[in-house]
Design a protein around this nucleic acid. Structure first.
Length: 313
DNA sequence: AATAAACCCAACCGCTTCACG
DNA sequence: CCGTGAAGCGGTTGGGTTTAT
């Protein structure tokens, strides 16, 4: 296969120790910028993009290389993902020594683990004819889950101030603070929901945006894997925990098992009109990391020993 | 011991944003 | 204001490693 000469000039694939050395020397000399000049100067046959990525993910100082996420880190990731969506860089900026890639990989591996757990504990799949797409269509019948309502600017501030970026993170960028996603629950990117999926927002979404659901959060509040689980949609396909969640909710709803329905909900979001205790909004439950974490399925996260090289957050 | 499944992670790609001329 | 290139970001993939059967 004949290749264009310019393509041959660009190396791809794993980095060698020699390349790393060159890159580190470059950064030490010029700083972490002008990545494209690494190639133009003839130092490395890599694109600037590739160089930057290598530096950010592997070579920059104070990275926690080969160190699994601690319980505290898991907690931060879970909470921040619930609040802000898949803003991996923003989340990583709050975790010392972690990169967006780390957070992203962590999250997706837990997602896969979740899918597998659900699949392995689900009852035999129904036939296609029985199941049908009614599941999806019935979604709009779901009760509306409510995001915590910021009744005052102070509440909102307090909510954000819980997450301060790690000051020592070399990844930190002053711009990042401004770029920290706001809890715009109307932003489709926030929900980590495949755009092909039916929206779970019920009607009136545009009238009460701040109250609408952030459904991907529910992934962290799975029922215990030993419990009966919803019938998975199309188990030959990639399990989608949106499906799982909605079908579980629907199942509970259809069975009139309100307690199960609520328990599957999120501490951040309450079922509208159905309080956990007395029907009122349980503000004292909102955003409580401890209670939040206690509800996670025990086998979803590792809670590993703190990394020896990590400093307490 | 062999194999499959699950897990982990490095790296790439495409898109968006931003700065600058 | 507009075009362009650099940088940043999120999604995805592929391959190596570990664990389970």
């Amino acid at each position: 296969m004949e290749r264009h000469k310019s393509e041959e000039m660009i190396k791809k694939g794993p980095w060698t120790a020699e390349e790393d050395e060159v890159l580190v020397k470059f950064v030490n000399k010029y700083g972490p910028r002008d990545w494209s000049s690494i190639r133009s100067m003839g130092l490395l046959p890599r694109t600037g993009k590739s160089c930057r990525l290598r530096w950010v993910n592997k070579l920059r100082p104070n990275l926690k290389i080969g160190c699994k996420f601690s319980a505290e880190e898991e907690r931060v990731v879970i909470e921040m993902q619930a609040r802000f969506g898949n803003k991996w860089a923003a989340i990583a900026s709050h975790l010392q020594g972690r990169t967006d890639n780390d957070v992203k990989n962590f999250w997706s591996s837990r997602k896969k683990r979740l899918a597998r757990i659900l699949q392995s504990t689900s009852p035999p799949r129904q036939t296609k004819s029985h199941k049908s797409k009614d599941n999806a269509l019935a979604v709009h019948e779901m009760p509306t889950l409510q995001a915590p309502e910021f009744t005052s600017p102070q509440m909102k501030e307090e909510s954000y101030s819980k997450f301060q970026p790690c000051s020592s993170s070399s990844m930190e960028d002053p711009k990042m603070i401004h770029k920290m996603p706001q809890p715009n629950f109307m932003n489709p990117n926030m929900a980590n929901i495949d755009s092909s999926q039916p929206s779970l927002n019920t009607t009136e979404t545009d009238t009460k945006p701040s109250n609408e659901i952030l459904l991907q959060l529910s992934f962290t509040h799975l029922p215990n894997s030993k419990l009966d689980l919803p019938i998975l949609a199309e188990s030959h396909a990639e399990p989608n925990f949106l499906d799982v969640f909605t079908s579980h909710q629907q199942q509970a709803f259809e069975l009139g098992d309100v307690s199960q329905l609520i328990n599957f909900g999120s501490p951040f979001f309450e079922v509208e009109g159905i309080g956990r205790d007395d029907g009122r909004a349980n503000n004292d439950r909102l955003a409580s990391p401890d209670s939040f974490f206690d509800e996670l399925p025990s086998d979803m996260f590792d809670y590993l020993e703190p990394c020896p090289s990590s400093s307490p957050l």
